[in-house]
């Protein structure tokens, strides 16, 4: 088995006296995906933030590419892509300018060509010169997908990637995730509902009261049917 690209070991996090995560263990190898399913407030976003190194756990450790997430070298940070509820886009820049900025930051080769291709891919080529502030939430999410993927990350952390997307957009997001998996990217994503699983075809575990239930930590088995609950939480207990 390949060394996990995304890993959590005994991750514990509380806000004040309220525990949010209670000893999370998971490991996602390159080319594999794990969907973390949970209700609002289950701690999904907190878990992804800790995996990315955005915040310190009270106990345990989050690791990316074998190194502690909070002490990643620049070269390792370049290999990470993240999609959150915040799009990380600048409202007063155009779609193209936003991607140009992130291409410059990530030193993307042939950035002009990549930007053109990605704008086309996410269906925003016609809006390349429009400022993001004029975008609908769904358009912003499409551009955020391009932003998170344009540097071809080796690990992807995606917080509800299908949120705000219409059916076409959700299908596009699922296709982009499958393509990332096919080229060896490790993906951790969150969702409220298990039926998003059909689109991505990945392993799933349910986050309940700060604990990950269900399948074992090894999330390699993207093709194993027993990882696919028929409805939220069904396969996790």
């Amino acid at each position: 088995m390949d060394a996990p690209a995304i890993e959590a070991r005994g991750l514990f996090k509380s806000f004040g006296a309220t525990p949010v995560l209670r000893g999370i263990d998971l490991a996602i190898a390159p080319g594999c995906a794990l969907m973390i399913i949970g209700r609002n407030g289950a701690g999904k976003s907190t878990l992804l933030r800790l995996l990315a190194g955005l915040g310190a756990p009270n106990d345990g450790e989050a690791r990316l590419f074998g190194a502690p997430s909070r002490r990643l070298e620049a070269a390792a940070r370049r290999r990470l892509g993240m999609l959150t509820h915040q799009s990380y886009l600048y409202p007063n820049l155009t779609a193209r300018e936003n991607l140009e900025f992130y291409c410059a930051v990530y030193r993307v080769a042939d950035s002009a060509g990549e930007i053109g291709r990605w704008l086309e891919r996410v269906g925003l080529a016609r809006f390349a010169a429009e400022r993001v502030r004029a975008f609908s939430r769904g358009m912003e999410q499409r551009l955020a997908l391009a932003r998170a993927l344009i540097h071809r990350p080796d690990a992807l952390l995606m917080d509800e990637p299908f949120a705000a997307l219409d059916p076409d957009g959700a299908e596009l997001a699922a296709t982009l995730i499958r393509e990332a998996l096919a080229r060896g990217c490790a993906v951790a994503l969150t969702a409220h509902r298990a039926f998003d699983l059909d689109a991505v075809r990945c392993a799933a575990r349910e986050l309940v009261r700060g604990r990950l239930l269900g399948a074992p930590a090894d999330a390699r088995a993207a093709d194993r049917a027993d990882y696919f609950p028929a409805h939220p939480g069904a396969g996790a207990r």
């Binding site: 955005l54 620049a74 915040q86 600048y90 409202p91 992130y102 930051v105």
Partner: peptide, 14 residues
């Protein structure tokens, strides 16, 4: 305010 500070933190920027 716009949350982009996190994107910069996660990026390889020096």
């Amino acid at each position: 305010d716009n949350g982009c500070i996190r994107a910069l933190y996660l990026s390889p920027l020096d």
